[in-house]
Design a protein around this nucleic acid. Structure first.
Length: 128
DNA sequence: GCCAACGTTGGC
DNA sequence: GCCAACGTTGGC
């Protein structure tokens, strides 16, 4: 299942990810977000969203690996790699207007930092 | 910077 | 186990 990952570009932007190539997506504390992280599988698609500054989906990434810390098995260690910048960023306002996102946790639970996406939502974000 | 919406914590 | 207080997220 694809996921949308929120990040504050002031702290870690999609440009940072492009520069780094890969990174470990850590610092998630919210339990529901952690559940999503744990369920991520290698090769799954991701969309990076800039919260606060920009407020738009900006690029795609992919799950490289998902392991757990031996000392702390509750904490998933999800490594992701940058893919591409979106041809056209999708702003929050556009997402809100899209019927595809009416029921999305993105709006139902707006502080959630890892949000599952349907394939249709992913396609629309990337190609729509 | 403000504040709404939640989640978490801690006193009882 | 309830709920007030506090902390965090993120839109505006």
């Amino acid at each position: 299942m694809p996921y949308l990952l929120k990040t504050e570009p002031d702290k870690y932007s999609f440009d940072n990810l492009l520069r780094d190539g890969e990174t470990v997506w850590d610092g998630i504390k919210n339990n529901q977000a952690l559940i999503s992280l744990r369920s991520m599988k290698k090769g799954e698609k991701l969309v990076i969203y800039h919260s606060n500054v920009g407020k738009a989906a900006v690029g795609t990434a992919r799950v490289v690996s998902n392991t757990t810390d031996a000392d702390d098995p509750k904490t998933p260690i999800v490594r992701i790699k940058a893919e591409k910048r979106l041809k056209r960023e999708k702003t929050l306002a556009e997402l809100r207007e899209s019927p595809l996102f009416t029921d999305s946790l993105l709006f139902r639970q707006f502080r959630l930092s890892v949000v599952p996406l349907t394939d249709a939502q992913y396609d629309w974000l990337v190609h729509g």
